[in-house]
Amino acid sequence: MSSKQLTVQSQLEKFPSVLPKFIIGLLSFVVFYILATITISFKGINERGLLIAINAFKGLFNPSMKIITDLGQYGLLQMLFETLAIAFLGTIIGLVFAIPLAFLASRNMFPKGINNICLTLISVIRAFPSFMLGIMFVKSIGPGAFAGVLSMAIGSIGMLSKLIIEVIEDLNPGIAEALDAAGCSTFEKIRYGLIPQLSSNIISIVLYRLDINVKNATILGIVQAGGIGAQLMFAIGARRWPDAGAMLLGVIFMTVVLEYFSTKIRTRLAGQKG
């Protein structure tokens, strides 16, 4: 038996050397260092920067009550609601387009040719930078929240349909067959066979995307596509720290509350299935 010749000494010689790992580690450190020196210009934090930082901190913890209590167009509540509205409406419109697209792209629903066309479309939409969409809509239909809604809707289609495809392809074909055998019409098959299987999953997906969209809606402001983003960036840029503080707290509060409920609903939906 060959294992008889095996000794501690012969096994010791086979011990993998740490040298290759060490070299890889060193090389990647050197590469990162070079990249950093080429790209990143470190001008140093001067005293002014430090002063600004201190003021910023002070302002962020002393939010302007004027903005918080203002119920007008530039009051915190209206701006937050506009942000939420962009995200919500964008998600819903995105969903309306994503569902048929997802069905067309699912292997168990339509032929391969149609699948591939739709999948390509989906991956192009997914890769397209969403703020570019925002810019293009602002340029063509004018600045404002409507441009934000449109870019958010298109931006959501990619991920929504990708996730919905997974759900559709996981469908249990047995239920449709059983309804077929019971002599159900196509409408009845969809109503009693498909929707009950899909709905809780799709609601989870939509809530998940809504979370992301609320965060993205803050970014859209920067390209004049509505929401709180523009005012927030202006306030920071102009160093109106108390205003910026109020808006940041507003954004944080809204996102956290939304995330809390969305997670709660999603865990409950997941629990129902399991």
């Binding site: 294992s3 095996l6 501690v8 096994q11 010791l12 086979k14 993998p16």
Partner: peptide, 22 residues
């Protein structure tokens, strides 16, 4: 250390599965 490796391999030898070390 080399001492540690030897000790570990000897321990594997004592329970008869030196060949499975890697």
């Amino acid at each position: 250390s080399k001492q540690d490796k030897i000790q570990a391999l000897e321990a594997l030898d004592k329970v008869g599965i030196l060949e499975k070390a890697y």
